Amino acid sequence: MKSPTLQTVIIAVVFAIIAYIITYIVAPTMPVSSTLVAGLVFISAFLAPLVIGKSSTSSGSSTDSNTNVSDEDVRTLYVGNLPYRANETAVRELFSNHGAVLSVRLMKDKHTGKRRGFGFVEMAADDLDTAISALNDTEFQQRTLKVREAKERPERTDENNLDD
Rank of each mutant, 00 (worst) to 15 (best):
K2L: 11
K2N: 12
P4C: 05
T5I: 03
T5V: 05
T5P: 00
L6F: 10
T8W: 08
T8P: 02
V9D: 08
V9P: 02
A12Y: 05
V13I: 15
V14P: 00
A16K: 04
A16W: 08
I17F: 14
I17T: 13
I18H: 07
Y20A: 13
I21G: 13
I22W: 12
I22M: 13
T23F: 08
T23V: 10
T23I: 06
Y24A: 13
Y24W: 15
I25K: 14
V26T: 15
A27C: 11
M30W: 14
M30T: 15
P31C: 02
T35D: 10
L36Q: 07
V37K: 06
V37M: 12
V37L: 13
G39I: 09
G39W: 07
V41N: 05
F42C: 12
F42W: 05
I43H: 01
I43L: 10
L47F: 15
L50Q: 13
L50I: 12
L50V: 09
V51R: 05
V51N: 05
G53C: 04
G53P: 00
K54N: 08
S55K: 06
S56G: 02
S58V: 10
S59H: 06
S62C: 01
S62N: 06
D64I: 01
S65G: 03
S65N: 03
N68D: 02
N68H: 04
D71W: 07
D71F: 04
D71C: 00
E72K: 04
V74Q: 07
V74N: 02
R75M: 07
T76S: 11
L77M: 02
Y78I: 10
V79N: 02
V79Q: 01
N81F: 05
L82D: 05
L82P: 00
P83T: 04
Y84T: 06
R85D: 12
E88K: 14
T89G: 09
T89F: 03
T89Q: 12
A90F: 00
A90N: 13
S96P: 03
S96V: 02
N97C: 06
N97Q: 15
H98V: 03
H98I: 04
A100C: 10
L102W: 04
S103V: 08
R105A: 09
R105F: 08
R105L: 14
L106T: 08
K108F: 10
D109S: 09
D109Y: 11
K110I: 11
H111A: 09
T112M: 10
G113Y: 11
G113L: 12
G119W: 01
G119P: 12
V121D: 11
V121A: 06
V121E: 10
V121K: 01
E122F: 00
A125I: 00
D126M: 01
D126L: 02
L128Y: 00
D129A: 01
D129E: 14
D129R: 07
D137G: 01
D137M: 08
E139P: 01
E139T: 11
F140I: 08
F140P: 06
Q142Y: 07
Q142N: 14
K146H: 11
K146G: 06
K146W: 05
R148C: 10
R148Y: 07
K151H: 11
E152Q: 13
R153Y: 09
R153C: 03
E155C: 01
E155F: 10
T157I: 08
T157W: 09
E159A: 15
N160T: 11
N160P: 01
L162Q: 15
